[in-house]
Amino acid sequence: MSTVSTDNLTKIYGSGPTAVTALGHVSIDVQSGQFVAVMGPSGCGKSTLLHMLGGLDRPTEGTVSIGDIPIAEMPDNRLTELRRRKIGFVFQFYNLIPVMTAVENAALPITLDGVRPAEAQKKAAEWLARFGLADRLHSRPDQLSGGQQQRVAIARALVAEPSLILADEPTGNLDSRASDEIAGLLADVSKKYERTVIMVTHDPRIAAYADRIIFLKDGKVVDETVLDTSTTESAVMLAEKIQGMGD
């Protein structure tokens, strides 16, 4: 089953001689539960693609489907609802509300959706506990490290139980250790909790956590690679090769 697909997806900003093609004829298919990284130089269209997939922006041409529902032509109110129920967003700068605690932040999407605060917070607390933050439920963002804040943001993205998580440079503001933690956690979100995760990143190390990498350049898919752990060489053999060591 495919959760997310695009067909001939094109986005042109502006018109006439100043028109810029941010995405040109992109057709991708992401299977349910897959963890996909989207890479490419800045300006390649990766954020535009993510915005189209999340229904945050409308295509100039082509289609986007989320769980076999076409969203490109969907009226605003229905699109907003689908976005709230089916898609979770994770951003580079976490976008947490400073005056609210971790659990209040994580509960926010369903609180706004009409779930009673006590119930919403119970659900949020469950996600936070899964992400190792059981003892930080009542901390405010400024009392948490960057990595912890991003974990709260991922809990918030999952609290409405969406099937799709879209992450835009989720490790862009973190040091390498916290980046690894967040990338590992997103891999868990896909494997353990069976959500589809699509992540934009420019960091090769973070992209390597994914099942599949899509490379964009000048608004087009130029390459793609599927990653499989079972066929990998061991580290020492690799180190040996790098060093040109050995008798």
Binding site: D180, G184, P204, Y209, T232
Partner: peptide, 17 residues
């Protein structure tokens, strides 16, 4: 080469973790 290196990086990361 890129595909090969990502494959290696994926496996190394899994081993490290």
């Amino acid at each position: 080469q890129r595909s090969r290196l990502y494959q290696e990086l994926h496996g190394l990361t899994a081993q490290r973790n």
